[in-house]
Design a protein around this nucleic acid. Sequence first.
RNA 1: GGAGAGGUGGCUGAGUGGUCAAAAGCGACGGUCUCGAAAACCGUUAUAGGUGUAUGCCUAUCAAGGGUUCGAAUCCCUUCCUCUCCGCCA
Length: 466
Amino acid sequence: MHDIKFVREQPEAFDEGLKRRGLQPMSAEILKMDAERRAAQTEMQELQAKRNEASKQIGEIKRKGGNADEIMKLVASMKDRLALLEEQDRTHAARLQTVLSSLPNILLPEVPPGKDDSDAKEVRRFGKIPAITTPKEHFELGEKLGMMDFERAAKLSGARFTILQGQLALLERALGNFMLDLHTQEFGYLEVSPPLLVKDEIMFGVGQLPKFADDMFFAGRTKSREDLLREALNYAEAADIEKLKKGEASLADVVASAMRRAPVKEDLWLVTTAEVPLTNLVANEIVEKEKLPLRFTARTPCFRSEAGSAGKDTRGMLRQHQFYKVELVSITAPDQSLAEHERMVNCAEEVLKRLELPFRTVVLATGDTGFSSRKTYDLEVWLPGQNRFREISSCSVCGDFQARRMNARCRGAGEKQTEFVHTLNGSGIAIGRCLIAIMENFQQSDGTIVVPPALRKYMNGLERIG
RNA sequence: GGAGAGGUGGCUGAGUGGUCAAAAGCGACGGUCUCGAAAACCGUUAUAGGUGUAUGCCUAUCAAGGGUUCGAAUCCCUUCCUCUCCGCCA
């Protein structure tokens, strides 16, 4: 969400920011809305002041037992105008809020121009790409070991699910434990076990809603389908029903229109990442500045509909509806966030270094950076089976963009003024993809997989899978 | 799921239609006193928005959103949340 003051004070900079996102300039339109709103607001408030004054007088007159009819008539005459102005004020505020919250964050100046991941700028590279003759992909290895089962997963849940068994299931668990230990014991993150189902406003706070509902799974607390439909149909408009009777609209049209009007309630969303609950821990709070930065980590499942990625990465477990990830979230004072961003990337990189996985760190291009982010580093791990680097971690600094949406503020000791905190999030790192990377990078010619030394104590000393 | 009770400032808690942005207590901050501290006493102590050169003035906010009324913390509706008892349950 953008600060209306920023648009007022630096409309050119605002439009330039949108341009780098490939969007049309909006400042003129927004400022027009803002001016209209303020004009109407001033009139409303002046009228409210008059009403309050008069009402006070009525109170006094009545207490003294006098007759206040005259002045009551005066106040009554303001009523229609005031109701109109109040209604307008709500409309204006909602309109402004809708625009400001639907536009993506302004990117930092150093974010390289470009439209997709091929335009990302490499900043550094670690590790040595292993020399493997005819490397296999993870699903070939996994299926041959009898520890990765895609067919039964499809039987249970359809495409984009995987079943891990035996030592690979253990590997998944070990990876999570290893990462959490590293971040809590060496980097000072607080381990959190958060809810995985969250309310609308929580998804709004991190920028997932209202724009990205299609990327998520939804878990309503269902009554029967019949009850839900009946409830929704209470919101059908008479006009629609009339059309239905005349055969001008289908039943589906009427239902769809009623559903749009019906209030959304008892909705819970499955988290797409632990960033969602962790960042919202400070929502609607004022944190003491001296307690910042707050650093949270969590290992959670992540649920994604992958709506826009039909046909991509269909084989194996690279892109799933459900996967585990260890997430890092920092809440900082405004002047700390950029330094914290570098620190966070280092924490994520350390995971790959200890696991001896080759990777590179890139800065995402303007067109590829997420909605809420001002700048994003991706870590890309080498996958021998695919003969290329693939994203395994994404670390973003969001400035006050999310904080403004979730009203998360901080205040220094003895200070009066509050400020919005800055938020950062990063994968530290994706467990599913890390498991793939280990399988492919440590594969042996006999189909077994060597366990990276750093991980063995988390696997009961196991040195080789298979 | 059933029945009931609630949600008021940093915290506790009073307030059931009108000088209520809200008593009182605690906490915090400032001052007096003291060599210093404690105690005591005095004072200050919410957030956001609008407006103005300015001390300022105005508006909104008593969980959230609507409504009734000349006037709402107080009455009505909806939603969210908390607690108690019963039921169910890992």
